[in-house]
């Protein structure tokens, strides 16, 4: 029984934390006033860039270097791709929901196409995926011996620690710095922010790029843990799940964290249940519904009191009242 509980905690955390970092990215973008349905695409493109860097570097060096660089390149890749969303939403004033959906479609088409091309041109094989494998997990000695809670420190992926550090920094930036204040002002009352001397469109662009970088981390984490490779299978809808988490958390970081944990434990708990009951693997699909149903039911109760940033989804026009 304890083993099962440990498994739920370990798997739940490794699923929840990437969702969390992606949700923070979404909060940055939406707090600045840009609706971001494109998180799904950002994390996929980030994972693609990172996986390519890892596989490419692995030809020359062994050891942990490719892994570090992959996360760097995932952030860059996600950020650059996010720039396109920013361009459409801010410069061309496209409808932000539509732009987000289109970004996701483009991400799938582009990464599958490029993966095939690159595999053929650079690595000389005809595969449609970059093989990565999973990264080695570690266990914190001492802390892991605590009953029940020790599972938090057992079999941890290195990226989980990284994500927590980045998350702490990003929430400081959002809530404790002048930049964070300006960013939130752009989402609630861009005209006031403009009057106070803030370049609204630039702040929004930066916010969208940040959300791309953070989503890239998430995508790379999924590529290194759940899927163990990069292929089109990375687009499983986790980006949408983190959007649900941030809406749930009423566009604030800490409540979004609890929501992500809830999704993570619903996910791993369902899997553990199937294992415990000894059902065939096709029942896994049934429990995968859990986080989504949970979201839907909880949203019904919480949506009343939710308040999105006031200027969310509206392109900023100087002369408009």
């Amino acid at each position: 029984m304890t083993e099962l509980l440990n498994m739920v905690i370990i798997d739940g955390l490794s699923f929840a934390l990437p969702l969390f970092i992606m949700a923070i990215g979404g909060i940055y973008s939406e707090k600045s006033g840009i609706t971001n349905l494109a998180l799904e695409g950002f994390q996929g493109v980030g994972a693609f860039a990172g996986a390519f860097a890892a596989v490419f570097l692995a030809q020359y060096t062994a050891g942990p270097m490719p892994c570090y660089f992959s996360f760097l390149f995932a952030m860059i890749g996600g950020g650059v791709f996010a720039l396109l969303h920013a361009l459409l939403c801010i410069r061309f004033r496209a409808n932000q929901v539509i732009s987000g959906v289109v970004m996701n479609i483009l991400a799938v088409a582009m990464t599958t196409f490029l993966t095939k091309r690159i595999n053929a041109a650079v690595f000389g094989n005809a595969g449609n995926k970059f093989m990565l494998g999973t990264i080695a997990r570690f266990t914190v000695p001492g802390l892991s011996d605590i009953p029940v809670l020790g599972a938090i420190f057992t079999n941890v992926y290195p990226f989980e620690g990284f994500i927590l550090v980045v998350a702490a920094v990003m929430s400081c930036v959002l809530y404790c710095t002048p930049f964070g204040l300006r960013l939130r002002a752009c989402g609630d009352n861009p005209h006031a922010a403009d009057a106070a001397g803030v370049d609204v469109n630039r702040v929004r662009t930066v916010a969208v790029v940040i959300s791309g970088c953070l989503s890239g981390i998430a995508g790379m984490s999924f590529a290194y843990s759940i899927s163990a490779n990069f292929s089109a299978d990375i687009f499983l809808g986790y980006g949408y799940l983190s959007i649900a988490a941030l809406i749930f958390g009423n566009w604030t970081i800490l409540p979004a964290f609890w929501a992500c944990l809830l999704f993570g434990f619903a996910h791993s708990g369902g899997m553990a249940l199937i294992l415990r009951l000894g059902l065939p693997s096709s029942y896994n699909d049934l429990v995968r519904i859990l986080p989504y149903v949970l979201t839907l039911v909880l949203l019904i109760f919480f949506s009343r009191h939710n308040r999105s940033p006031r200027a969310l989804g509206e392109p900023y026009e100087k002369g408009k009242r």
Binding site: Y240, L286, R288, Y292, V293, L296, L299, I300, S303, N306
Partner: peptide, 22 residues
């Protein structure tokens, strides 16, 4: 209930997909 229709749509897509697959 003021639930954003975009979010409901996304949840519904996944729920239907997994149910049908199962």
């Amino acid at each position: 209930f003021n639930v954003n229709e975009v979010v409901t749509s996304i949840m519904l897509n996944s729920i239907v997909m997994y149910l049908v697959t199962f």
